[in-house]
């Protein structure tokens, strides 16, 4: 479904990767190894070389905004541009189900962004990303700020969303989470992506 050929940028050696529909691929590795650089390069947020295709269509064949809508990237610390939570969504009322699943109160639309905790920002950033219905998810430690219960419901929400038609690249530090979620596990060390030896 997502095909990556010789994708490279400063700090990242050429990456070749094929992800099928229904797959969740975990990316692990020490801090600074290039995990976030890889996700940013796939999302085309930084200059990079190589080829990335979604369902046989090359990234360069479509406008960058269209590509990023299809290949949704969630940074470890999602950004916010307006005062309150609700302003960041196309259609805030229709988010109630996802919010309830993730343990966010339904009236948090009026909350100021400055009041949110790290974990709340991560969950709201995820809901905001899913609103655009991307076919591929690029998630950068989406549950690092969450307690155990919320981690579980977040994992369930993402697994249900991926289903059999979509796919996901999931950066995580947590071996147990990779074991629960991933159909495949890859490691990045010093900018080089490889299958783990162990």
């Amino acid at each position: 479904m997502l095909t990556i050929n010789d994708l490279a940028r400063p700090g990242l050696e050429p990456v070749n990767l094929e992800i099928s529909a229904g797959e969740i691929v975990a990316i692990m590795g020490p801090s600074g190894a290039g995990k976030s650089l890889l996700l940013r390069a796939i999302s085309d947020l930084d200059p990079n070389t190589g080829m990335v295709m979604l369902g046989g269509r090359a990234r360069e064949a479509m406008p960058a905004p269209t590509w990023r809508k299809e290949v949704g990237y969630l940074p470890a610390e999602p950004g916010w541009w307006a005062e309150t939570v609700g302003e960041h969504f196309q259609n805030w009322p229709s988010q109630q189900d996802s919010l309830a699943t993730l343990g966010m109160p339904g009236d948090c639309g009026d909350w100021p962004i400055s009041r949110l905790s790290t974990g709340e920002r991560q969950r709201l950033g995820l809901v905001r990303l899913l609103e655009g219905v991307p076919q591929v998810l690029l998630l950068d430690e989406p549950t690092s700020g969450l307690d155990a219960d919320t981690v579980e419901s977040t994992e369930r929400l993402i697994r249900d969303y991926i289903g059999t038609q979509r796919c996901c690249l999931w950066v995580t530090h947590d071996d147990a989470q990779a074991g629960r979620m991933a159909t495949r596990c890859l490691r990045i060390e010093a900018g080089r992506l490889a299958e783990p030896t162990s």
């Binding site: 949704g72 916010w80 655009g132």
Partner: peptide, 10 residues
């Protein structure tokens, strides 16, 4: 981060 958040949403 805010500018790039908008970019990632298309």
């Amino acid at each position: 981060a805010a500018v790039e958040a908008k970019l990632t949403l298309g």
